[in-house]
Design a protein around this nucleic acid. Structure first.
Length: 631
RNA sequence: GCCGGCGUGGCUCAAUGGCAGAGCAACUGAUUUGUAAUCAGUAGGUUGCUGGUUCGACUCCGGCCGCCGGCACCA
């Protein structure tokens, strides 16, 4: 039999299994190979090698890592099976940085204090080098094997026969495979956390206990990963927000962030930047009320569909709701005057402070809050302006995200089952959005059927320190709301026509975006965003404090955010404070500087001391601010 | 909302049934400082709230609130 190996044709005996193939082709690494791959499919080492392009999977490969973790989830399940014989197993897949298994422990309560015992049992089983044996059964046979497990019993009939199983000693599990040859390949693992997870992700179902864990090829790699997890915590925006006094949260208003003076600087700078970009793009800024009457929310449909998430109140026997979205208000402003097709696109921007009663368990720092500011805009266009407008918006997104050095991916959500409007409108819009994604040069995915009932949408996802992704920007097409509000424009023929509305946000929630930025910069903001841009440090406050005050006044007048630290402390101490506060520029002012009207600056994260005339420093920092450069 | 964990001075953490403590920060004084922590002193807590068990509760138990990790949610 001939196979292609490393681009060359090689001869292997017919019916050879993976173990023997690696022995023949790559004898040095034969003990490391976890599996072999022919074409796109991965096989266990004891399976017969079919014809095609052959390669081997090693622990260092992405596929190898995934396999190890998948096999490790079976190992963990076997250990749990030994310690908790009544435990029933749901699903246990590999995930990006490890694996989990959903387990029904019945009446038994499990806490992370039980982890060491499970790990110990896993280690014992690992030493026994129990082989993973693949079996293929009919549906009836599989149901017989799992007759006591309601979860597998539910799952088996949904699969196509033959049903593959993997048996390791006294434990058997339903599984597509492939797996590492035996449990001794898994030595460096750790159980990480415990969580409740609904069976099949449906909150109507029973909640199982999910155990998250991870497995690495070597002890060093595992250690390294655990260190990464620790380091990520140091960049957590909640921690940095507290340390740097950017924002706070109070028990008096869960999910309702307070912006402290330093955080407010960032928020204001972001809004200023937003205007700087949008006004020349033809956006007009509006402001609509925070609270509007029930009748309005009935027209928009929110009263019926979104009431559980709205804060409502009764005034003079009349129901009001605090806005969870800005669209109805924006449409009222649109309807305030008559519009011709010549007015379109009409771009109405608004920093709208909305409130939504999110589930208590969903709240998370600035990422998920109950009150937040959307950098919203509602754009009213004719149906044939969709393409052009979407492209314009995407170029704004690209421009703005790149200023922050943020990478993102796009998700296109298409027509759901319960859509409204013409199917043709949907097809055309989806095509336009998909093309826009392709031209953007960014990674994009399609979420089939996940669009809103009123139109397809593009979501822009940014990643946080912990590797979680958060929706920030979005572009949504909407044919519903303009219709419900009876919005129209006069077309070329002098007839009334219904506009299409685009909802779009770049930051999404300014609060969430700030959270992402805090983590992205590790709290060390570029000069233009830094709450304090310059800290002045007179060498001796007594001798040089006067010059310090002079420089302070000059920089203040130039609009630079400056602080003077003339505390009665050594220079080293005050410099350290400036560094810990992550201030971009620390300026040392001593005898030399005083005499020559100069400053000696040191940039955050660098050790160089550079002395320049004061005027020159002002010019260089202003340039950095103007260009939104880091320094 | 659900599962599990957690809640101690402004911050980070200790004390596990027996007198609530440390470091940092704050304040006072000395020192007058040249690139990541000068020294000494002072003050600061009804241990999230609430009910119970106990001679005695930060510690054990119940309820509530909040936070954290997930799940669900995010038209």
């Amino acid at each position: 039999m001939k196979v292609i190996y490393l681009g060359k044709e090689v001869e292997l005996e017919d019916g050879i299994i993976g173990f023997n193939a690696v022995k023949a082709l790559d004898p040095e690494r034969r003990k490391e190979a976890l599996a072999f791959k022919v074409g796109e499919r991965i096989y266990d080492m004891n399976q017969v090698v079919p014809e095609g392009e052959l390669s081997f999977v090693f622990p260092s490969d992405k596929e190898g890592f995934e396999m190890m973790n998948h096999s490790c989830s079976h190992l963990m399940a076997q250990a749990i099976h030994h310690l908790y014989p009544h435990a029933q197993f749901g699903f246990g897949p590999a995930i990006e940085e490890g694996f989990y298994y959903d387990v029904d422990f019945g009446e038994e309560k499990i806490t992370d204090a039980d982890f060491p015992a499970i790990e110990a049992e896993m280690r014992k089983l690992s030493k026994e080098a129990i082989p993973y044996k693949r079996k293929e059964l009919s549906i009836e046979e599989a149901l017989e094997v799992f007759k006591d497990n309601p979860y597998k019993t539910e799952h088996v009939p949904e699969l196509e026969a033959p049903i593959s199983m993997y048996e390791q000693g006294d434990f058997i599990d339903l599984c597509r495979g492939p797996h590492v040859p035996n449990t001794s390949y898994l030595k460096h693992f750790k159980l990480l956390s415990l969580a409740g997870a609904y069976w099949r992700g449906d909150s109507k179902n029973k909640q199982l206990t999910r155990i998250y864990a991870t497995c690495y090829p070597t002890e060093e790699a595992l250690k390294e990963h655990l260190e990464v997890l620790e380091k990520r915590k140091a960049n957590d925006h909640r921690r940095l927000g507290k340390e740097l006094e950017l924002f706070m949260l109070s028990d008096y208003g869960p999910g309702l962030p307070f912006f402290l003076p330093k955080g407010m600087v960032i928020k204001n700078e972001l809004m200023a930047y937003w205007r700087e970009v949008h006004i020349p793009e033809g956006y007009k800024e509006i402001e609509t009320p925070t609270m509007l009457s029930r009748e309005l929310w009935e027209i928009s449909g929110h009263w019926e569909h979104y009431k559980d998430n709205m804060y409502t109140t009764k005034v003079d026997e009349k129901d009001f709701a605090i806005k969870p979205m800005n669209c109805p208000g924006a449409l009222l402003t649109y309807k305030n005057s008559l519009h011709s097709y010549k007015d379109l696109p009409l771009r109405l921007g608004e920093f709208g402070h909305v409130h939504r009663h999110e589930a208590s368990g969903a709240l998370n720092g600035l990422f998920r809050v109950r009150g937040f500011t959307q950098d919203d805009a509602h754009i009213l266009i004719t149906p044939d302006q969709i393409e052009d407008e979407v492209k314009r918006i995407m170029s704004i997104f690209d421009r703005m995200y790149s200023v922050f050095g943020l990478s993102y991916y796009i998700v296109l959500s298409t027509r759901p089952d319960d859509y409204i409007g013409e199917k043709e409108f949907w097809d055309r819009s989806e095509k336009i959005l998909a093309e826009a994604c392709e031209h953007s040069g960014h990674e994009y995915r399609i979420n089939e059927g996940d669009g809103a009932f009123y139109g397809p949408k593009l979501d822009f996802k940014l990643r946080d320190t912990m590797g979680r992704t958060w929706q920030c920007g979005t572009i949504q097409l909407d044919v519903n709301l303009p219709h419900r509000f009876g919005a129209y424009y006069i077309d070329e023929k002098g007839e009334k026509a219904e506009p299409v509305m685009l909802h779009r946000v770049v930051f999404g929630s300014v609060e969430r975006f700030i959270g992402i930025l805090i983590e992205n910069y590790g709290g060390a903001f570029p000069t233009w965003l830094a709450p304090v841009q310059v800290r002045l440090l007179p060498v001796s406050p007594e001798a040089h404090g006067e010059y310090g005050k002079e420089v302070y006044d000059i920089l203040m007048k130039e609009g630079i955010r400056v602080e003077l630290d003339d505390a009665n402390e050594k220079l080293g101490y005050r410099l350290r404070n400036a560094v810990v506060s992550k201030i971009p520029y620390s300026l040392v002012l001593g005898e030399k500087e005083k005499e020559t009207r100069s400053v000696t600056y040191r940039i955050y994260g660098q050790k160089d001391q550079i002395t320049v005339p004061l005027d020159e420093f002002i010019a260089l920092i202003k340039k950095a601010i103007k260009e939104k450069a880091r320094f």
